[in-house]
Amino acid sequence: MALKTFGNKDTRSGFGEGLRLLGETNPDVVALCADLTGSLKMDAFQKNHPDRFFQIGIAEANMIGIAAGMTIGGKIPFTGTFANFSTSRVYDQIRQSVAYSRKNVKICASHAGLTLGEDGATHQVLEDIGMMRMLPNMTVVVPADYNQTLQATLAIAAWDGPVYLRFGRPSVPIFTPEDAVFKIGKADLLVQGTDVTIIACGHMVWKALEAQVQLAEKGISAEVINMHTIKPLDTEAILSSVAKTGCVVTAEEHMMNGGLGDAVAQVLSKSSPAPQEFVAVNDTFGESGTPNELLKKYHLETTDIVLAAERVLTRKN
């Protein structure tokens, strides 16, 4: 069975297009960038709305503070920089001035994970989902492809409260239909299956779909869920799927500690314990390399999901 795609594109361009559309439709939306306008694909918004675009310079802490302040008086600020500089560099600013202060700031983060590639570990944040989902009042959204990132960008503007939106650099297959409805906190059940549940987010959703095809060829029926919202987590989607399959594989371009896998494990352990395997980076920093070399070396390939599914099946009662 061939998987259907609508071409390939980077998720950050989905963000850029979503922001451009918001510029036309929502006069309260303002955008702030810390010297990475091109990388974040914020150029169109900047060009169309120079009065609502704020170049902050290389000063991310100040950017988060300014964004928090801008909400007072009704603006909806979207901040843009790399994921590492959107989170670990400014964690206390987000914690005090955004999350604790319940400010309607949208923290938009590109170049997340290993697929940033050659820049290496200083820029390859693998802890951001964990950091952000730990913060009270914070919503964490990790869309899977261009179309979904575009829809997610529109959705977070309408969502009242702080949001972390994570996307990436490489060109990846588009499988979400253009007109698909995106609902924060409501997972997408992409493929129904009966033997094992695969829950993935971000770039790993496509690989989960590929893994499902390979598993089917081996006679294993996998259910695939796109968990695009890590917080609030769609616990109902997890529990109802695992009630059917009895085991789960989680897949994310993130550290094993603190990410999607942990979030799923917490849900299962509280109400319906089930064997789980984690496809994630195992407590190590990344390094320079091409995105594909990195995914291979750090075990985030389609094959790794297939192997994890086979392993978890052996642990089922």
Binding site: A61, A68, T71, G73, R95, S97
Partner: peptide, 20 residues
């Protein structure tokens, strides 16, 4: 209108509010 205590953050917030 804003939590404070962890130092150094207020002036940025004030700039944002002034800009709005």
């Amino acid at each position: 209108r804003m939590a404070s205590g962890s130092l150094g953050q207020g002036l940025s917030v004030a700039i944002g509010a002034a800009t709005t």
